[in-house]
Design a protein around this nucleic acid. Structure first.
Lengths: 372, 372
DNA sequence: TCGACCAATGTCAACGTTTGCGGTCATAGG
DNA sequence: CCTATGACCGCAAACGTTGACATTGGTCGA
């Protein structure tokens, strides 16, 4: 409030209430965005010359330095901005990457979007967001991001198997597509993912080495990576201990609240586990909270292992032992692929899954089990 | 890996290595996306008729049902998708909202982006992301999001005062702009924000009622809202206690790590505070962790108050007392404004700040001070 | 039997760029 | 004095849509 007139109010503040005074404040500027023709008129050249000068095209015939000068100054004076739609019409890339995510509310995917945006910007691209949550939106996401192919390529985040319409639309679209975190059921597109199985096994190895034998799993909706993680857990435990005890796999929503509910259920079991593996750090946070509020001390009474290594994982109470998701690598590879496909249409759609390795980050939420 | 051939591989998998076999696999489809002319040819009508039928334009002159039928079936058969660039060139809105955020890595803004995307999609718009972090990107964000006005309107998130070039570009752009969370120095655009002062005062009232007198403030970089919050804190404390003790205002980076550092510094003070107000929940999380690892029990030994009420705030250990940021309201109003301005060019740029009220959420991280 | 009028469709010029191809000068060489 | 030859630049056609306007082929009333 104190700074109402922060930056150059004289410059900008003029416009506002009265919309009739189009050119009064700005002099002779035609108020709508200037085109190349306007520049051509001012500079006294043809519009194509303007195009050539402004794009600095390597024309076989040179353009006089003086003409060049006249055009550029005219352009600057008029405040020319090229019209990307017109360029796009001529086949120029839009420099836009579409990102379709199943649920942007999921903190993990929100983080992934961040990383994706950063990676895209680094390559000169920007991100168009679409999310596909819910029956109704299903159409929207594509109508806007795909069908509306402003985008040079599309990146899919997360498992979208339950959105048949979206997948169908993807199938006969011409924009190149790459998938990230497709988990156990990747689409027929180039895909990058984390090695869920290796991650879960590394985590379980860690717990087993500490001496744990009663290990439970808290899972979000078994889709995509989550399903892979759960499968890896089951496989390992069966391999090692013969069977997964009843109730040792909890299915909840992938939120802290879900983690809380799951842990309460686990603690109520006749034989409560001494360690809990969560399919996601978000769940682990909830589990930590539930343990705390039940008086169960982590890691003394209970070990908790997460997956993802979200930003907060190193700052929970206690700090969370987890599996670091190589978001950066995955996203970078995804963007690289997407751009490569966008540039070279001949290579599009060569399915295949590239996996990146997660790594175990040992912090304070795991310890040997207490001797009952 | 197991699911390599997940969905309809016969349909899609065909394309790939050999790019000469354009039409071989797809029959007679021209392989590039079909235009209205293609449909017109197939249906045996003129291209404008196709346009009229497909857009179901309320033309004063009717079109024969049979013709209509022929056109629609042809369109469906060819898999027609309208070209938004061509439409845009004719002046149609792109249904894209640009979002420029100072630092998408900030968890709060990441969350805001989510909410913004949801709100935009609800209105039929999609989001184009641009971030403006760092000197170099500064140009990029605008080159891509603004200059490239694919967007019908632009939403600014957070204080961007330190990006002069961006602001300058905004000044003479023709796209309508609205600002969110501009804090103490809003730009000359319609702006929506939270009432930081009221929030801080409510939080301090709460602490004072509990009996606290030694209250410290942990602040991120004093920009935008953060600056307002800090100012409100100082004002309140001076008003109430005459002065802010030395060292009672800590400046750190807005991360959990920053919160940790700040709390360590505060605990090292000769007269440590009994309560800490953080400018952000992210900082509060760090503070909780630092307290825990120092053996300082929250809330018995120290009260911690956050700001924002992020998703995790109710699941920290202990659950965080904080001020709920009305993200939904702010974002909804912002999107509403943006779309309104996009639709009605005559109303653009009527500066002014609308503030939404935060509310105090009391959880377990605050309590009366221990009697030393 | 002829113009009027209506239904049903086609024509054509935009929108702002890019780009292949051709045109117009001046000047130098003959 | 005439014609090549560069050096510079303009013309105009695309790109895929839209929409104002023109154009058909009939049917109807006079």
């Amino acid at each position: 409030m104190e700074a109402e007139g922060g930056a150059g109010e004289g410059e900008v503040g003029g416009s506002g209430a009265d919309e009739t005074a189009k050119n009064a404040t700005t002099g002779d500027r035609p108020r709508s965005v200037p085109t190349m023709r306007d520049i051509a008129l001012v500079a006294g050249v043809s519009q194509s010359t303007v195009s050539r000068v402004l794009n600095d095209v390597p024309t076989r015939v040179p353009i006089a330095a003086e003409t060049r000068e006249r055009v550029t100054t005219a352009a600057r004076k008029l405040g020319y901005r090229p019209n990307p739609l017109a360029r796009g019409l001529r086949g120029a890339p839009t420099m836009l990457l579409g990102a379709v995510v199943r649920d942007i509310t999921d903190p993990f995917f929100a983080g992934a979007i961040e990383a994706l945006s950063v990676a895209a910007v680094n390559q000169g691209y920007n991100l168009v967001l679409g999310h596909a949550r819910g029956r109704a939106d299903e159409a929207q996401a594509l109508t806007a991001v795909l069908e509306t192919r402003h985008c040079d390529a599309i990146v899919l985040l997360g498992d979208l198997q339950d959105q048949p319409r979206l997948i169908a639309d993807l199938a006969d679209s011409l924009v190149p597509i790459v998938g990230l975190w497709q988990g156990s059921s990747p689409l027929e597109v180039p895909t990058v993912d984390v090695d869920n199985k290796a991650g879960i096994r590394a985590g379980l190895d860690h717990l087993v080495e500490l001496g744990h034998e009663r290990i439970a799993f808290v899972s979000g909706r078994p889709l995509g990576d989550i399903r892979e993680r759960q499968a890896a857990f089951t496989e390992y435990v069966v391999e090692r201990f013969g069977t997964v005890p009843d109730g040792y796999i909890q299915h909840v929503s992938n939120t802290p609240g879900g983690g809380e509910a799951a842990l309460r259920a686990l603690l109520a079991l006749p034989q409560a586990p001494t360690a809990v593996v969560t399919s996601t750090d978000t769940l682990a946070v909830g589990a930590l909270h539930a343990a705390y509020s039940r008086g169960v001390v982590v890691p003394t009474d209970l070990s908790v292992l997460g997956f993802d290594d979200i930003l907060l994982a190193s700052h929970t109470v206690p700090a969370l032992t987890t599996l670091r998701m190589p978001i950066g690598e995955i996203v970078a590879e995804g963007v690289r692929l997407a751009i490569e496909l966008a540039r070279d249409p001949s290579a599009r759609r060569r399915p295949g899954v590239r996996v990146m390795a997660p790594s175990l980050i040992v912090r304070q939420s795991t310890a040997p089990p207490s001797t009952n």
